[in-house]
Amino acid sequence: MDNCFSQWRRQKIKPAGEVGITQTSKGEMYIIARDLKGQLWEKQEIRGDWSQWKLVEEADREQLDMEYGVLAANHARDGRIAVFGKSKYGEILFSWIDPYDENKTIRWKNMYQAIAVNIAVCERCTGGIEVFRLDTANQLWHSWTNPKGEWSQWQPLGGPISGAMTVTNNKEGFPQVFGKFLDGSLAVRRHHSDGMWGEWVYVRKDKIQKFKSMQDSDGKILLAVLDIEGRIQTCRQKEEADAWEEWELLSTEEYTDFCLVENDQGDAVFLGITNNGTIVRIEEKCLGQLQSLEEIKVRWIESARLIDGTICFIAVGLDGYLQMKEECKDGAVRESSSGCL
């Protein structure tokens, strides 16, 4: 039976900037977001249901860039979650929190006065966390945690990157970072098993707008881009980590953004956003069969998985409110007693 979707549920949050989405070490989904008033809120899955939104106390709020928002990543070695933000001066700030502590407090620390235009976070297969930052000279740097959760010094990875990047672990369990270069082309650099990084390798030399990456059930990386005409095109990694298949046009429709996730059958599912904010669902195995999800209009969308494997979509509507819905299994509508707030 085809999968269905629950209804979109409007949340109480109008997020500012980035929204932090991760899973706890128990496999439960965790969301943290800053609202337009500068307040920090969290919501998490607990034993298969959703908690209410709860304010998170912060120390040293006066140094924050409130418009950036927050990122989040799970430190599987000890169950803590790292939350990242930016200071008014562009410096990366972070704090450790226990997602199950009812009285948690964010205590922001500066990561070595490192200035960042953009930040990406990777949860390592070893249980650690790796952070990538782009500086004001378009150069890429990275820092990672040791078993105690202590951060390394920043190490250079080169460039020049235009501002957009994404990181995904490959089947060997090592991160590969993708960057959009200043000429609009897309390149990748891979961490090898010996601890060294390879050189930048082009995977697409013509100009693109946006791109995202995901590890599939085979451990290979699926790469998807919005080309300059707004079409979604995809490419998969071959058995050899530095080799890539030919690009495939997924849809001739014009989109402004998209997200991707793998369904229970191991097929990629794309949700594209059209120019008027309509969400269109595209399955990789059923090209040309587009399913419109028109209950709301959105400007941003992302996906993650709940503890039972259900796909959860998180979007920001044209009205600014955060919206959530789940993909139901076997045609059954997923219920949530506390889904709205």
Rank of each mutant, 00 (worst) to 15 (best):
Q289H: 07
L322A: 09
M214H: 10
Y321G: 02
Q323K: 12
E239M: 13
G173M: 03
C312Y: 01
L93C: 02
C286I: 01
L36T: 15
I279V: 15
E239R: 15
G90P: 01
E150Q: 07
A33P: 03
E172I: 05
C4Q: 04
N118R: 13
N103P: 00
W300A: 13
D60S: 14
T274I: 04
M165Y: 03
Y255C: 09
I21C: 03
F5H: 13
S6T: 15
G309P: 03
E28S: 11
E295W: 05
N275M: 03
R334F: 10
A241R: 08
A120D: 09
T278S: 06
F178A: 12
R77F: 05
I208G: 05
L157T: 08
G159V: 13
W8M: 05
C4L: 08
E254T: 13
W244M: 04
M324C: 10
S303M: 07
S51R: 02
P160A: 12
A332E: 07
S292A: 12
R133Y: 06
I119P: 01
C286Q: 09
G173W: 04
I208K: 04
K109F: 01
W300Q: 15
E248T: 14
E102R: 14
Q237E: 15
I307M: 13
I119Q: 05
G195F: 04
L306Q: 11
D78S: 14
D49F: 09
I92Y: 04
G195V: 05
R10A: 06
D135S: 11
L322M: 15
H191G: 01
W151I: 08
D216C: 08
I106F: 08
G85T: 12
A76W: 06
D49A: 10
Y89Q: 13
L134K: 10
